[in-house]
């Protein structure tokens, strides 16, 4: 890539002086120009190509593909399981964040570090590891098999993978808010006669709600688009355990670019909606609570 060479130099961008508020610091033209050019080449133009291709199909073209039974089934699988996984992560993520923030116990630092593993571990590695554990002869799969519970190669397996990859989001959004939460509001609640349970339910949890919802939305968004960790454990049965991203890959392999584009356009729209939802949530939280 030779973007740097083609990036406009500071003075070459005549609008810069009026465009930004005057500042003594140099380099705005150079860095702003390079950053926007780079972002355009790497992110915006490729995404625009997708939007262009999708608009060629027309809204009814996309609608026709989106309502095909197999696509509908995949959308249902992806959204339903992503929602369930994000919900599980909201509950357990809150517990993990609480424990890591409020209690001191041996191994806490290690536990804290482990939370980020799903961010750091390549998804394909997580996928084959989860498949191995939950296969009928795996560590957990063999424990569940006598009860007739099959995890790997069923929708339940997808759920497990989506819990894994969404795990850090709620923990990491709640932790800083919980750490900043003034202990005095809990004491105030106690002096007013509230039991510990009432204090947690009426004071602590409502204060954490925006952070939990943000974490939920992030985990959900990530789960809907997830591919690598899911395909190994999913079984990938059409109508049953086939996720939307996999459907895109299948369309591509069949050289059905229109189908792939239409499904991708739907996912892109969903990504933007969830991004918007998260931003609105944080703006609301800032306005109401004075923190993020």
């Amino acid at each position: 890539m030779s973007d740097a060479a083609t990036a406009p130099r500071g003075p070459a961008w005549p609008g810069s002086v009026r465009f930004r508020r005057p500042s003594a610091l140099p380099g705005f033209g150079l860095t702003f120009g390079f950053a926007t050019l780079y972002l355009s080449l790497i992110v915006l133009i490729p995404l625009a190509a997708l939007v262009l291709r999708a608009s060629g199909l027309g809204l009814d073209g996309i609608w026709r593909i989106a309502t095909m039974p197999r696509v509908l089934a995949a959308l249902q699988v992806s959204f339903g399981l992503s929602f369930a996984a994000a919900a599980v992560n909201a509950v357990f993520g809150l517990v993990v964040a609480w424990v890591l923030t409020r209690y001191r116990f041996p191994g806490r630092r290690l536990l804290d570090a482990m939370v980020d593993l799903p961010f750091a571990l390549p998804t394909a590695v997580a996928g084959i590891a989860l498949a191995a554990i939950y296969a009928p002869n795996g560590w957990i799969g063999s424990l569940l098999a006598p009860f007739g519970i099959k995890v790997a190669f069923t929708p339940l397996g997808i759920f497990v993978a989506l819990v894994f990859i969404g795990l850090p989001f709620v923990v990491r959004t709640v932790q800083p808010v919980l750490a900043d939460l003034d202990r005095e509001i809990e004491e105030a609640s106690a002096t007013l006669g509230a039991t510990r349970r009432q204090t947690v339910l009426r004071v602590v949890l409502p204060s954490l709600l925006p952070a939990v919802l943000t974490g939920f939305a992030l985990a959900f968004g990530r789960a809907v688009g997830e591919y690598g960790s899911v395909i190994f454990i999913a079984g990938n049965m059409p109508f049953r355990s086939e996720i939307v991203p996999l459907l895109i890959v299948i369309q591509l392999e069949e050289f059905n670019y229109a189908g792939a584009t239409a499904i991708a356009a739907i996912m892109l729209a969903i990504a933007f909606v969830s991004l918007l939802a998260i931003n609105l949530l944080q703006a609301w939280s800032r306005r109401r609570f004075g923190h993020v």
Binding site: D182, E184, I185, E187, A188, S189, V203, P206, S207, L209, R288, F289, G290
Partner: peptide
């Protein structure tokens, strides 16, 4: 409380 500790929500 010194910081009032009002319930923000």
């Amino acid at each position: 409380f010194q910081s009032y500790a009002l319930f923000k929500h």
